[in-house]
Design a protein around this nucleic acid. Structure first.
Lengths: 209, 209
DNA sequence: TCATTATTGTTGCAATTGCAACAATATACA
DNA sequence: TGTATATTGTTGCAATTGCAACAATAATGA
């Protein structure tokens, strides 16, 4: 995965952050960083792990995105009425914040590392689109079984392994796939009974690969 | 919406296309342009209208993305097994193709319009992420009613109008929302009966706004 | 214009799902 | 270590949905 600092020397990284008036902030585990999101910002996760979570008017919790090291998120989180978006850290997390407008409207006077930074951002956002497409691939499946199998397929393609280690709980997986937890549990049982998978704690093994 | 040629003079636009070895291709209405998608490409719709369509092993058709003027698509279309992706033109359509790797790895020797182009692409991909998020917002709704209402909400926010004019048919809308057409039809009827909306042909009017 | 094709509306029914409620485990932390 | 908390497993049941089949209407093109 491309880093925002790809092909930029450590020295220039520092200059860049100053030039673009970036803010580096540390968050403790289990803190909400939504308060930081004012205007059009871009956050880059340097260390740690966080989740973008939507809670709708029914109280339904959906994990919109998982943020690992190197991931980028931003105020491209469209917030509709009746919905609340939160970014929650699940570990101690270090994030660099940029002002999107500032970055885009910055008049470059020959800082090659600025151009490289923009290029890196382009690569990262392109990857993010790929992630979003995969998520859409899952969500457009009609049945829970097909959602699970698509999720497995994507994981298998990504890691090349028959084993899937959940980043977090089954509860979270259900929230990520936007399905009812107990219904997912039921379907996982069916998949086990039919010999498609086995599970051991938070490890799922695909038997049909 | 930002164009790939934003802040680039017509003269430099031509130079840019040559520099990046871009191909401009015209497609007739109702043609499949998938054949063009080899390797890691980026396509920019200059004129016309097209749809990215997935057909799964059940024969289910899903409209993944609608491509209007200025929109960008690419091989960030993750293709899993058992699924077929196609880009189909619904009108005569003009598309410029770029080689993504070529663009990214291009060593710039002082062409300022190249930097501007990369910046424009960044803005466009950022917007695309927003679109994807909105689609995910819809798809993560549990009921057909909530999917429709979320779709309405997004449209309303975008246009500021109570009237929604479908770009294409109700059949396509169902395929876009990834729901069964007849079930959607049933739910639209319910929404009408309960006074939430009225419809007249392909115009939907929101009465609760 | 007329005939063919595509879209839309409708409905019964079976399958799937969400929901609720609770038991069984596992995990966290005082 | 023990207790409170979180996660997982399970199930009945009602609600929602997809599917199929067909009629009605609209759009298309020869």
């Amino acid at each position: 995965m491309v880093s925002i600092f790809n092909k930029i020397s450590v020295n220039n990284q520092k200059k860049l952050l100053k030039l673009l008036e970036a803010n580096t902030i540390f968050f403790k585990k289990d803190s909400a960083i939504s308060s930081m999101i004012k205007g059009n910002i871009i956050g880059v996760v340097i260390e740690g792990y966080a989740q973008i979570i939507r809670t709708d008017y029914n109280g339904n919790r959906t994990i919109i995105e998982e943020l690992e090291e190197g991931n980028v998120f931003g105020s491209f989180i469209s917030s509709l009425n009746n919905n609340e978006y939160n970014v929650l850290t699940k570990e101690d997390t270090k994030i660099i914040f940029f002002d999107y407008e500032f970055i885009i409207n910055f008049e470059n006077n020959g800082y090659s590392y600025y151009n490289q930074f923009i290029k890196n951002l382009l690569e990262i956002t392109t990857e993010l689109i790929d992630e979003k497409n995969k998520k859409i691939e899952i969500l457009t499946q009609k049945t829970i079984r097909d959602k699970l199998l698509t999720y497995f397929e994507i994981n298998f393609k990504k890691t090349g392994s028959k084993n899937i280690y959940l980043t977090s709980s089954y509860t979270d997986l259900a929230d990520y796939l936007a399905i009812d937890r107990s219904a997912m549990s039921r379907e996982l049982k069916n998949l086990k009974n039919e010999g498609f998978i086995t599970t051991k704690g938070r490890k799922i093994t695909l038997l049909y690969k």
